[in-house]
């Protein structure tokens, strides 16, 4: 019997297998902690910081921190919620996120967090960067305007020899996620679907399939993100 750790989230008694990451442990106890760059089956990135919680006064990301016995975790506190909302707003203003013309709208996790935190308008000025749309691969479009640099595609989309289709380029605010020309041109349909599935926003799109789901039937049209997490 693996050792179970007892811990508290916002005062609620919880139990989970020690060493499991807080996000999964919380989910098992019916508590939703928002994530954007976390992806099941892939090593957590700690890139988006949206899952920030506080443990003994220190801010930590719940996706990368394993559960320890007796841990006291604060998650739903006003200042932590404001940090998460602030990060969502930062991501909106530092890209080109025009939801009305984006086919991922309604299924987009960034937009869903915007709805969850009732982001009527970001507090930061819009940056309107002009970024590249790469359509060189036969099956996908990589639209850097909508990319939030979460590394999900970099970490999860590999060819049979383990080589990455996607990678970072440059650093700081010139950072981009780029598609490898050689691998991109030889990408097959399944990899294209997998790549689009890995992207939480509308940055990787399978070609010629746009706007397949009518408004009202998309994932977050009726229910906010995280509403599926219950005991």
């Amino acid at each position: 019997m693996s050792n179970l750790a007892k811990f508290k989230i916002d005062g609620v008694e919880c139990m989970a297998e020690a060493g499991k990451f807080i996000v999964e442990a919380a989910r098992e106890n019916g508590i939703f902690i928002p994530t954007l760059c976390n992806m099941p089956g892939v090593k957590p990135q700690g890139a988006c910081r949206v899952c920030t919680v506080r443990i003994n006064g220190r801010l930590m990301t719940a996706c990368t921190t394993p559960i320890g016995d007796g841990m006291e975790i604060e998650s739903n506190k006003p200042d932590l919620i404001d940090i998460r909302k602030s990060i969502v707003e930062l991501l909106f203003v530092s890209g080109n996120h025009f939801c009305p013309a984006c086919e991922k709208s309604g299924d987009c996790e960034l937009q869903a967090l915007g709805y969850l935190y009732q982001m009527m308008v970001p507090r930061y000025p819009y940056d309107f960067p002009l970024r590249e749309v790469d359509a060189s691969s036969p099956y996908i479009i990589k639209d850097q305007n909508r990319c939030i640099m979460c590394k999900r595609c970099i970490k999860s989309v590999k060819d049979e020899e383990g080589r990455s289709y996607f990678a970072f380029h440059n650093r700081g605010d010139k950072l981009e996620v780029v598609l490898d020309k050689v691998l991109g041109e030889s990408m097959d349909k399944q990899t294209a679907e997998k790549a689009m599935e890995s992207c939480p926003v509308g940055s990787i799109l399978v070609k010629e399939k746009g706007f397949a789901k009518p408004i009202g039937t998309r994932k977050f049209d009726r229910k906010p993100i995280g509403s599926d997490v219950k005991l």
Binding site: P100, A101, E103, V133, A135, D143, E208, K209, G210, F211
Partner: peptide
């Protein structure tokens, strides 16, 4: 120009 072509109807309707 530069947008995926199947986005055109949704763009120009505005």
């Amino acid at each position: 120009q530069g947008r995926p072509y199947w986005e055109a109807p949704v763009l120009v309707q505005r």
